[in-house]
Amino acid sequence: MIRNITFTSISVCLVLNAVIAASNISWAQDKVAAKAVELKPVSTFQSITDEKQRSVALFEEAGKVIQHPRCVNCHPATDRPLQNLTMHPHQPPVTRGDGGMGVPGMMCTTCHGSENVPVIGQAETIKSIPGNPNWHLAPIEMAWEGKSLGAICAQIKDHERNGGKSIDQIVEHMGQDHLVGWAWNPGEGREPAPGTQKAFGELIKAWAQTGAACPS
């Protein structure tokens, strides 16, 4: 039984002193959706005549990726990354550290290599350990966890909170970056982000070209 657990839901639980049902959260890897979620191509949005509305719609479509756990898990609101479609805190408990690369004694590279590694002959619920040569957390100012798509959009455009990137650089980052691309190649046992990085990149590019408007 996989449930979406967030810090807030737990504290609400406590505050309300709710009657708590017996259950178990799942620490296993994702139950991969039978059919991958597709992204609508940019052309679908041509019919929206108002450019601002079109821009917003493009971003909302791209938001299926941006707000997918595969992306949010490494854009956490705290110093601890998340895991799984349930977005539970990473186990073992790892910490952001300098440059989002982990801390002395337990850097990300302690477990994450330059590529995904299949786990053979162990837990059926852990099929692979993810990896990428540039494996690291997004800086805290780029935290997406718990934010609305509109807030994320504003943040993406804000130089103070996007690593000083221009819109063009953002388009390139989203569409080309290898670590971003990991979201569509997350290793066995993990549901990939919707669509493809190419389709996502095109949506972001079209969004930029239509004035990079944000959902309200």
Binding site: P92, V94, V103, P104, G105
Partner: peptide, 16 residues
């Protein structure tokens, strides 16, 4: 890497 670690540094390195 950290010759004089704090308790938090120790947690960070050893929690795995």
């Amino acid at each position: 890497m950290t010759p004089k670690p704090s308790d938090d540094d120790i947690d960070g390195a050893m929690a795995g």
